[in-house]
Simulated assay, not measured.
Amino acid sequence: MSVATTSTSRGLLFGVLASLAFSTSGAFIKPLLESGWSPAAAVTLRAGIAAVVLLPIAVVSLRGRWAALWRARWRVLGMGLIGVAGTQLVYFASLQRIPVSTALLIEYLAPLLLVGYVWVTTRRAPRAVVIIGSVVAILGLVLVIGPGALGAAVDGLGLFFAALAAVGCAIYYVIAARPSDGLPPVAFAASGLLLGSVVLGVVGAVGLVPFEFASNSVALFGAEVAWWVPLVIVAVIGTAFAYVSSIAASEMLGSRLMSFVGLLEVVFASILAWILLGEALTLLQLLGGAAILAGIALVRSEKQADAPLEPGSVDELATGQIAVISPGPAPALARDTIADGDPAATVLTAPGATKP
């Protein structure tokens, strides 16, 4: 088995684990939102706690190579300002004007943006298998989220904010996929989350977005627990672990393929909502999940020798070729309650997820 094949297999494993981890946020953040928390407050603390959890590990991983963090300063700024904070802020703004399902559907069009980006920057049209895989995956996304998301929105500004969230999500994958240059994924995730949480906190403090907390106990899977219990769980699993895994996977797979793998988040979110929250899982959603898997398989099947290589992927480095590297989540969500964007919280009742 070649180095490229091995790294891609590992990348797919990390990508699936990241999508599964991001998908847990909806089930654990929803109780907080129902008890009076605003999405912005929940996601700010979520990112902040995750950063604190990762910082000791990040410091150890950077021992003797702090210069790597300085070299990656623009990448860190992009992750914190766009991948963590900016994407979620415009996603929140879209939720104030259009249905959650519509906002989710638009945001998760990010893979199509990346397919188009590679097409434009390399001036090489994607192979038919990639186009077919893209269509199949997006149709699956529509089935999982709900066909009602199509045409449900009428507010132009809301659609614009959702489109910005899609761009932010795409940029998140591009930033995550860029060569690490010696910066460990855990250090990159910790610094990006720390910066993003600070920015979100400032935005909330000045009143640009609703920022409300509640200290009362919350109902979690039939039991009353302290408010910090679900917050810590989602910070550790749905944020810290999810971001590190997502960044590692993006570096191995490249931005385009990882963005398609990220669609599994909505599938896992629907399954968890069914298991943990008792929300019905319909036949259409099951078919949609199968379609997303098929789309990912089709995109992955494109032969690297005949197609543009993914920016920053290990496959690219293993073959010794040079690909165009672009400048550059996510959001985790829940269904029909309200969610944030890729890396964030939710309040939806349609599948949600994170991330970005």
Results as ranks from 00 to 15, higher is better:
residue 348 L to N: 09
residue 185 P to S: 09
residue 208 L to C: 09
residue 325 I to K: 08
residue 127 R to G: 15
residue 208 L to R: 10
residue 234 V to G: 12
residue 233 I to T: 09
residue 324 V to Q: 12
residue 287 L to P: 02
residue 355 K to A: 06
residue 33 L to Y: 15
residue 55 L to W: 12
residue 306 D to L: 07
residue 65 R to W: 01
residue 296 I to E: 03
residue 302 E to G: 15
residue 347 V to E: 15
residue 92 F to M: 06
residue 138 I to V: 15
residue 68 A to H: 00
residue 78 G to M: 10
residue 168 G to D: 10
residue 55 L to C: 05
residue 76 V to I: 13
residue 57 I to G: 01
residue 50 A to N: 12
residue 238 G to E: 00
residue 90 V to S: 09
residue 240 A to N: 07
residue 63 R to L: 02
residue 85 A to M: 02
residue 123 R to H: 07
residue 232 V to R: 04
residue 264 L to P: 13
residue 297 A to I: 02
residue 149 A to I: 05
residue 351 P to R: 01
residue 315 D to A: 15
residue 155 D to K: 02
residue 251 E to H: 11
residue 324 V to C: 05
residue 143 L to T: 03
residue 335 R to W: 10
residue 242 A to P: 02
residue 89 L to M: 13
residue 159 L to H: 04
residue 321 Q to P: 00
residue 168 G to T: 11
residue 89 L to C: 06
residue 150 L to G: 02
residue 105 L to Y: 10
residue 111 P to L: 08
residue 40 A to N: 08
residue 53 V to Y: 00
residue 221 F to S: 05
residue 178 R to P: 11
residue 184 P to D: 04
residue 125 A to I: 03
residue 137 A to Y: 08
residue 244 V to N: 05
residue 246 S to V: 00
residue 76 V to A: 06
residue 47 A to S: 14
residue 297 A to M: 14
residue 90 V to K: 09
residue 31 P to H: 11
